[in-house]
Simulated scan of single mutants.
Amino acid sequence: MIQDLPIADRPVRLLLISRKWFCDDPSCSLKVFTERYDWLAPHSRRTLRAEHILRQIAFSTSCLAAEKIAQAIHLLLLKSFFLRFLMKSIAKIRLNLQKIAIFY
């Protein structure tokens, strides 16, 4: 199940069935290929637009306030989610800054 932004104050969960292809060639490095979507990151449980909104909420408020805001817009998430989400986002930012510093 994939979580998306609510519609008309109703929570939205998407059941996504993607196609898989298998490669029988022994020289092939990837044995299983799956269908990818531009609105969903690989192995993600939320759409990119839901992640964007959650990132804005997490970076603009405290985790306790973010939990209340998320519940008000029918995204059932706990404050611990926002803590993990912030830590992952900060780690990605640091990695990108290190890449920029190396190329500079």
Rank of each mutant, 00 (worst) to 15 (best):
R10Q: 15
A66Y: 02
S89I: 14
V32S: 10
K68N: 11
L76R: 05
F85D: 06
K68Y: 08
R94T: 07
L83P: 02
S29H: 13
P42N: 01
K99Y: 15
Q56E: 04
V32D: 02
A41L: 09
C23W: 12
M1G: 12
P26Y: 13
L5P: 04
L97T: 12
K79P: 04
Q56T: 00
W39C: 06
M87N: 11
P11T: 07
R10E: 15
L5C: 14
L95S: 11
E51F: 01
Q71D: 10
F81W: 13
T34L: 13
L78K: 04
A91V: 03
P11M: 04
Q3R: 14
F103N: 05
L14S: 06
L86V: 12
L77Q: 04
K99H: 14
A50D: 01
A101L: 13
M1Q: 09
P6D: 07
S27R: 14
A91K: 12
T47C: 03
E67C: 05
A66W: 07
L75M: 15
K79M: 06
F33L: 15
F85Y: 09
T47F: 00
A70F: 01
F103P: 02
R13L: 09
S80H: 07
R13Y: 05
L54G: 03
S27C: 14
C23R: 04
P11D: 09
K79F: 15
Q98W: 09
T61K: 04
A8K: 11
M1L: 04
R84D: 08
P42E: 12
R46V: 01
L76K: 14
A8I: 07
R36M: 08
S29L: 12
K88R: 15
D24C: 04
S44E: 00
Q71K: 04
F81T: 03
L15V: 08
P42C: 05
P6F: 10
H74S: 09
R10A: 14
I17Q: 09
K88W: 13
L14V: 10
I2Q: 01
F82I: 06
M87D: 13
W21S: 08
L76C: 02
P11C: 02
A50V: 07
L97K: 08
R13D: 12
Y37D: 12
A70S: 11
P11L: 10
A50H: 01
F82P: 03
P6Y: 13
R94Q: 12
A101T: 11
E51R: 02
Q56M: 10
T34H: 00
D25I: 12
H43N: 14
Q56P: 02
E51K: 00
I73C: 06
L14G: 09
I17K: 12
T47M: 02
H52V: 02
L75R: 00
R19N: 01
A66F: 09
K20R: 10
A70E: 00
A91E: 09
H52K: 13
S60N: 08
I53K: 04
K92S: 13
K31T: 13
L97A: 05
L95I: 02
E51W: 00
I73H: 10
Q98R: 14
H52G: 01
R10S: 06
L54V: 00
L5I: 06
L86P: 06
K79C: 08
I93K: 15
I102T: 08
L48T: 04
L83I: 12
V12S: 08
L77N: 01
Q71C: 00
K99P: 01
A70D: 00
